[in-house]
Design a protein around this nucleic acid. Structure first.
Lengths: 219, 219
DNA sequence: ATTATAAGCGAACACGCGTTCGATGTCAAG
DNA sequence: CTTGACATCGAACGCGTGTTCGCTTATAAT
């Protein structure tokens, strides 16, 4: 269902207003911002955004609209909720449900981050995993860390990727470089060794975009 | 200025409601929640919270109140804004303004995180620093990482601390252990060596509670 | 030419919501 | 006993806000 330009403007305004003011706008505030003089036209367009699943509305309540994402309310568009889908361990490929499936959208734990921590771009196709074990230490990633990953099956030189190495039956996190038909996997910590792999022996499972290490509760 | 129990209840309700609903409560909603039957009593108490700097109010606007912290609006009480005060480098002690001073509360960049990432407890006395240089690699902390620190001058065994080693004129990030009058600073990565320091030769500058590594924009 | 849909409009209305007023009761200080 | 500060109350009011109605115009499909 495509939105009209007017509807997209309304949606962007709701996002900005809610971030700036800490409350949703009124129908009259929206009308003023996008040059609609009639409250009934704003109401008509909000009904369309609601049908599209982008907002929800509460009847007969002032400022009763909310931004929605994936069927859930978004408290603030500056924040992104990333599903925490499980663990990354050395001896298994990452098992993540495909985005868009009901398993992906099931009620998981999640980690909430600001968009600017994520580099301000596409926040779709992100998921988070707990690191299990010490085998990623060469990526300076420790047991218990959280890695936020972007689901992709290709990589560019320099990307820190989760790669499944088929003959070793092992997942590793390393910087990816392709040189003359060979793939080099370079550890982030230079004390460890670079691995060279044939392309058909490797499956890229995702790219790391953020790592979080919690150092115990500040009890 | 101490708040009455009733005022604390109102304040907690505003926090919860704003988190849950994505908009502040009305005066009547607050009254219902804390058993005040009169809108003028709620108004009276909100005026006190406003004078205490905990909320701000916009006149003659529905749901025109907002939560405030350190003189700034809080979009959502689940989030904590941590001042990003500068850098941590090996060759200098950490230079942070003392909490509560105007330099600390000056208009810095900040990093916003959820309280549960921080281990859900005291979010006061936190500040963040960019890591500069490779000298903290033995803590698995790399150039460009963000460390979130709790300002404290003592440490417990196992804490990851920023320590200034006086005779070496150097800041290091290591796990702190005190054994028989000697302080051992243990790198997070076992490939590196433990340092032993006399207590008078060291100044604890803070404890790391979180590390964030951004892996380039997901462009 | 007709019909259906999308998008716009002003006006009116009902109710949600914040503000104000005049009042009462309690408690501490003088 | 009096006064002042704090906290409470119901009522009324004015305006902020969402909903509904009847209408018009443009466009596409039949």
């Amino acid at each position: 269902m495509a939105l009209s330009e007017r509807q997209q403007q309304i949606y962007s305004y709701i996002q900005r207003f809610t971030s700036d003011k800490g409350r949703p706008p009124t129908i009259r505030e929206i009308g003023q911002a996008v040059n609609i003089s009639s409250t009934s036209v704003v109401n008509y367009n909000l009904n369309i955004l609601e049908k599209a699943g982008l907002i929800s509305r509460e009847k007969e309540v002032s400022r009763g609209l909310r931004l929605m994402g994936n069927g859930k309310p978004i408290a603030d568009p500056r924040f992104v909720q990333i599903p925490l889908l499980g663990r990354i361990v050395a001896g298994k490929p990452i098992e993540i449900p495909e985005a868009g499936t009901s398993a992906f959208e099931a009620d998981h734990e999640s980690v909430t981050l600001t968009r600017d921590l994520l580099g301000g771009s596409d926040s779709e196709n992100l998921y988070a995993l707990h690191v299990k074990g010490d085998s990623m230490i060469d990526a300076s990633i420790h047991d218990g860390d959280i890695v936020v990953m972007k689901h992709q099956e290709t990589a560019r030189n320099g990307d820190l990727v989760a790669a499944w190495i088929k003959d070793k039956q092992q997942t590793t996190l390393k910087r990816f470089f392709r040189e003359k038909g060979i793939i080099k996997l370079v550890p982030a910590n230079p004390s460890y060794k670079t691995i060279e792999v044939e392309p058909r022996n490797i499956a890229i499972q995702g790219k790391v975009v953020l790592v979080i290490r919690q150092l115990g509760a500040a009890a």
